[in-house]
């Protein structure tokens, strides 16, 4: 076989990929690859739940709180599948970092989430609508928790489709939250004197989830040793032996 001289990259000056053109180029394919069905199912179920108080003659704010929480959880469960990417191990080798790819997915869903939440709030009749700011904080924290679970699953287990695990974890967290003792409770009723302090805890959950998300969005400098021994990120060959 004849050796072919392949023009290599300029090693003197490391190629710095400009993010903006990459993002623009990625926009359409990433939008195409979003888990539309899971997102749609979560959104539709959430809207249905938010509309339930309309069936009641005299809905109260407690009913509204419970159903809006369930609606936010439904949307977040759908969003937990956001990072599912069957091609993850193949795209691991491209020069565009995971942070950009994951961030792009999140950015594409953000306007949808805002629109959806507005619609959900408007679906709850005025009489049953709990304080909007506090409920928005809860919904944002729930969504952030779902995304944090998904990014953490990607970072630490290297799964290509972390959605199911993240959704299961979020569901488990939601069930566990109902069991929290009163001084640490998150799911407090509107009339409860601990409403404000509970929302400080919600804010802490949101902040924590966002931090976890931000930390886990980047690739690990060294891939998880136990996983790396089994598969290479691109699925083509084993890792180089040292």
């Amino acid at each position: 076989m004849r050796a072919v001289a392949v023009p290599g990259p300029d090693l003197k000056e490391p190629t710095r990929v400009r993010t903006y053109p990459v993002v623009r180029a990625l926009l359409r394919p990433v939008a195409h690859m979003l888990p539309h069905r899971a997102l749609a199912a979560g959104s539709v179920l959430g809207l249905l739940l938010a509309a339930v108080p309309r069936l009641y003659e005299r809905p109260d704010a407690e009913l509204g709180v419970g159903l809006l929480r369930a609606a936010a959880l439904a949307f977040a469960l759908g969003a937990a599948f956001l990072l599912d990417d069957p091609a993850r191990h193949i795209t691991a080798a491209v020069p565009t970092g995971r942070a950009v790819r994951v961030g792009l997915r999140m950015a594409l869903v953000a306007p949808l989430a805002v629109l959806w939440w507005t619609a959900a709030l408007l679906l709850v009749p005025e009489a049953a609508r709990p304080p909007v700011g506090a409920m928005t904080l809860e919904a944002a924290a729930t969504l952030a928790l779902a995304l944090a679970a998904a990014t953490a699953a990607v970072r630490f287990s290297g799964q290509s489709e972390p959605g199911l695990g993240a959704a299961g974890g979020l569901l488990a967290a939601a069930v566990a939250a109902t069991l929290l003792p009163v001084p640490l409770g998150l799911l407090v009723p509107v009339a409860d004197p601990g409403w404000d302090s509970a929302h400080q805890r919600w804010a802490a959950v949101l902040a924590g989830a966002v931090l976890v998300c931000a930390y886990c969005m980047r690739e690990a400098v060294r891939p998880n040793a136990s996983r790396a021994a089994l598969t290479s990120p691109s699925g083509t060959s084993g890792p180089p032996r040292r």
């Binding site: 199912a41 979560g42 179920l45 959880l73 439904a74 469960l77």
Partner: peptide, 10 residues
């Protein structure tokens, strides 16, 4: 796979 968690909520 996403049907079960949503079904559980519902």
């Amino acid at each position: 796979v996403f049907a079960a968690p949503l079904f559980a909520i519902a």
